[in-house]
Design a protein around this nucleic acid. Structure first.
Lengths: 166, 166
DNA sequence: GCCATACCGTTCGCATACGAACCATCTGGA
DNA sequence: TCCAGATGGTTCGTATGCGAACGGTATGGC
């Protein structure tokens, strides 16, 4: 394993190394964003661009594939976007013919969102390719380290949730 | 350490568990995005919202703080955004009085960007609070696991770079 | 049955985000 | 010296992203 700091991190030490900051936490969190952005860009370029699908649209299709029909609110929550953003994304997906909306028979306020057959076909085509790329990227870690990484990240997620919740 | 799957992950198993997918890689990568989004939201709400600073503006100030004066292109690269986006963000930061642009005396095409004193004051006020929140979040992991996590994420970053670069 | 309150999704205004296309400027070779 | 190609930054068009505010619908207490 290569534990050298990345060039950007060395620059930070050079500029701020003498300040009273928690660099251990900083390396953990800043590398979280750095690697997430890198993986996202890679996926957009190598998997999604060929089908003209944005990252958010991809996540939206994935969510509807996994969860089935959802209220617009639950949809936004699962995708990780705000309600207004969800409205816009659903408009885009609707224009592409990938989702449909129908009134909730049990609640006049609610709108139920689900994949069309075309939408299902799209995600069933895209996701295996996405997963193959995940395998390739994560392959740089051993199997054991992939499990370790997932576990550490779950702890982070739970830690943030604890600091927000009651 | 708690290795239970998150609710969203259990739902994935329920829906796709019988398909030939690499779930080990999937948990590593999907938790990367999940935790990064959670931390970002938390930081936006707890640190940045109080000063009406967007995530990208914060990163931009941070980059100029660490690197000093930069060409617009190098700035975009360091922030992790495209050149057109950088133009827009710099316009916003300029309107706030946080950055200035000047012509590069050695290259008529280039624009050099740097923090104003006000901009410097802003990031020097924000960053310690940001770092304190990093400490609190990462504190859920032990010191040793924070180092492990950073190291694993660096490996991921390098893995992606290898798959893109020549 | 009434109504204050909560909740659902949309609209609005604005900032962020990107690819494609564009000019202006620089560079290397003839 | 000149010009073909490369490079730097902006503009354009469109999609994503959010908080605030909005109307329509449901709910709970009375």
């Amino acid at each position: 394993m290569n534990d050298d700091l990345l060039p950007a991190e060395r620059k930070v030490i050079e500029a701020l190394g003498d300040r009273p900051l928690d660099f251990r936490a900083m390396w953990a969190i800043s590398n979280l964003f750095r690697s997430a952005a890198a993986v996202r860009r890679h996926m957009e370029a190598k998997v999604l661009a060929t089908e003209r699908v944005s990252w958010t649209s991809f996540v939206a299709l994935w969510v509807l594939w996994v969860w089935g029909e959802l209220g617009a609110n639950a949809f936004a929550e699962a995708v990780g976007i705000s309600k207004p953003t969800a409205t816009g994304v659903l408009r885009t997906l609707d224009a592409r013919g990938w989702i449909t909306r129908r009134a909730d028979p049990d609640d006049g306020r609610s709108v139920l969102v689900s994949l069309t057959p075309t939408g299902r076909k799209t995600i069933e085509h895209l996701f295996p390719r996405f997963n193959a790329e995940e395998t390739a990227i994560a392959g740089a870690l051993g199997e054991r380290d992939q499990v370790r990484l997932a576990s550490l990240l779950r702890s982070l997620s739970r830690s943030v949730q604890d600091r927000n919740g009651a």
